[in-house]
Design a protein around this nucleic acid. Structure first.
Lengths: 238, 238
DNA sequence: TGGCAAACTTGACTTAAATCAAGTTTGCCT
DNA sequence: AGGCAAACTTGATTTAAGTCAAGTTTGCCA
């Protein structure tokens, strides 16, 4: 079976995506508007900042990043997206993509024509509710990220970033103790607002503390509890 | 006329709020579910983190802040809300308020019972669209804030914060060159992730550069263009 | 399969902003 | 009106993390 042909009805991540709580007949309507595209290759661009919004995207496999460009043309990464996550929700407000989106890996993606999704949401209360919930959760996640960046040290930020990725994989029934980092350390540093050198040194430190192992791009979390604690409350000031 | 009795139909900020693009008959339906409460007094709490979501709030006058508490019980401010802005959108996802909300000033507020708002959104496409747009815009604003905190120096953050407030007042036809800061410098420092001392010193610096004047709580922006530029691109590295 | 750029590492040095300490000013409450 | 806590200011010192410099390693592709 061609993976491009998987339908919402049988998609393994449908419970994280828009079909949550829809009746079978409703899922079918949703499925009918979904376009499943050829896999995007690493570094392929899905959309560009300023283009007018045509589709909302959901990740089925692989990983995407979104970013803007600053005055000097440097990437400013604004998010990473793993399977089940929805990309471009910030474009709805004024109908224009507000960032670039690029595949970090070969990635399968579902494209939902926004106008069709919107009118379906008008007919299906469950879909409307789910869309609003997904957006509400994104606002919540953004506020959590805000607190992380604003109040925590570099080592807490990196620890929390790894734990956050791990949790997102766990919810998706992917391995949460050992996984491949889909992004480079340069990307992590950019996203977390720190220097690459700092990221490298902190990974070394986390390893020395026996919290995790990093080999090439493969992360193994050795002590989930301690890593969590380290990320949250290693800031003792007595 | 009692200000508590103003209706959506005649509310001066309705064009920034949920009624945008609704037909008159539709606005009436919306107006019917809105509760206008007695003004909240300074420091009065609207809701607490963990309470289950009953109402979404919109600010009519005054100013609110939202915050969470960290392990040690310290406030972590997550947002300030001025007239026309909607509070508690991050609570919809799991039906629980995700922060505390407190009045910074005597504030008039409209309370919208969420279940009623939700079912109205099911009947009125314009309301559904507007709700989704408002949420999308909040996601966008959060991402802009993220970039600000992540990539900019303390002085750019403070400059951008002031310009952001000024712009929000301007949209609401309030004075954008001269206004009363509704929050203390302690609150600003908390929100922007810096020390109060730094905020105080930077206000002094902005004054010395003839960009603004601050007297008690009254801000006068002396050179909007330069302040904007200062906030955005004062980071020369040759 | 070898060359090269991107990714990552390590060490020395610098710096922006935090912390600490000790004020002064403001405005609320009795 | 006067007292007191919160808000704000100013200066001296410290520190976390950035920058700079110079590597080594990895993996792509011609």
């Amino acid at each position: 079976m061609n993976t491009e042909q998987i339908r919402c009805q049988s998609c393994s991540i449908s419970k994280l995506c828009l079909p949550v709580m829809l009746a079978d007949s409703e899922i079918e309507h949703l499925d009918n508007i979904v376009k499943r595209r050829k896999p995007y290759q690493k570094d392929e661009i899905l959309f560009r900042q300023g283009e007018s919004l045509t589709h909302i995207f959901t990740v089925r496999s692989g990983c995407l990043k979104t970013f803007t460009l600053d005055e000097e043309g440097n990437e400013q990464i604004t998010g990473f997206y793993v399977p089940g996550e929805i990309v471009a929700l910030d474009a709805i407000g004024n109908g224009t993509y507000q960032s670039y989106a690029k595949a970090l890996d070969t990635s399968l993606v579902c494209a939902l024509p926004y106008s069709k999704l919107d009118s379906l949401a008008g007919q299906m209360p469950g879909l409307r509710t789910q869309l609003v919930k997904v957006m509400s959760n994104e606002i919540l996640d953004d506020k959590a990220l805000f607190l992380l960046l604003n109040k925590k040290t570099a080592e807490q930020r990196l620890g929390a970033f790894i734990m956050n990725l791990s949790r997102r994989y766990a919810i998706r029934s992917l391995s949460s103790e050992r996984f491949q980092l889909p992004m480079t350390q340069v990307d992590i540093a950019n996203y977390l607002g720190m220097a690459v050198e700092t990221v490298s040194r902190l990974f070394k430190k986390l390893h020395k503390l026996n919290l995790l192992e990093l080999k090439h791009r493969e992360i193994t979390i050795l002590n989930k509890d301690n890593l969590s604690q380290f990320a949250g409350t290693s800031c003792h000031h007595y």
